[in-house]
Amino acid sequence: MNAYFTVFRMRWKMELQYRGAVIGGVVCQVFFGLILVSLYRALYASKPQTMPIEAVASYVWLQQAFFRMQLSSDSELMDKIRTGGIAYDLCRPLDLYGYYYVRILAQKLLGSLLRAAPMLVFAFLLPRGVGLGLPVSLPALAAFLMCLTAGLLCTCALENLTMAFTMRTLDSRGVQAMLNLLMMILSGNVLPLTLYPDSWQKVITLLPYAQVLDTPIRIYTGQYALADVPRALLIQLAWVLLLVWAGESMWRRHQKRLIIQGG
């Protein structure tokens, strides 16, 4: 347990050391947020949709603020896989899945908290319909936070599985780029999932990518009513369990194979 805390502490120190990168990242993300909101406002001016523009603006800002939760970020671990240095870790007597999971969790949690806080404040101060609106109700805010936590657990499990998967492929960089891209498209970062054709949404919202940010944000903006929350949470947790199970068994197989083959 102690080792896991150390991982968090080290990550925190690292994040603080690269404050310049954090500030730059926030500015960049704010910029992207402004562009996207402008685009959707112009589109809405031509043809309004059922989802109000205020909700779309909130959707965009929450997506940008928690951007860090989506992108695979552990370049150190990726390098290890590419260069084969991962073999050292595989030989270590520790629960690899748990260790990597905590590493990824620390990165995503601390990284996005540090960036989200200033961005949300900024977005909140923008005029209505451009900036971040209030949650539809207080219970909705509570449900949002709960589902965001579930989403975080889900994205970490997803990245861990991806990591295990890329180890088996010839060119991990290409596969990684492809999976990252799938994440960006299917999580609502490129285009809010609420703006996809309605028939597509029925399927897309069930995929693990939608569980990360789309589900929590829909609760925040009121697209999902409070009555829908139990169902949404259930889907999220089902994915978490499934992804953890798949990831864990894959890492275990890697470890076993390495021991049998003797490296």
């Binding site: 112009a42 589109l43 031509s46 043809k47 949709q49 703006l195 996809y196 054709p197």
Partner: peptide
């Protein structure tokens, strides 16, 4: 493509 599908035009 999806934007065009939903909004038809932009200004």
């Amino acid at each position: 493509i999806l934007i065009v599908d939903r909004f038809d035009r932009l200004n």
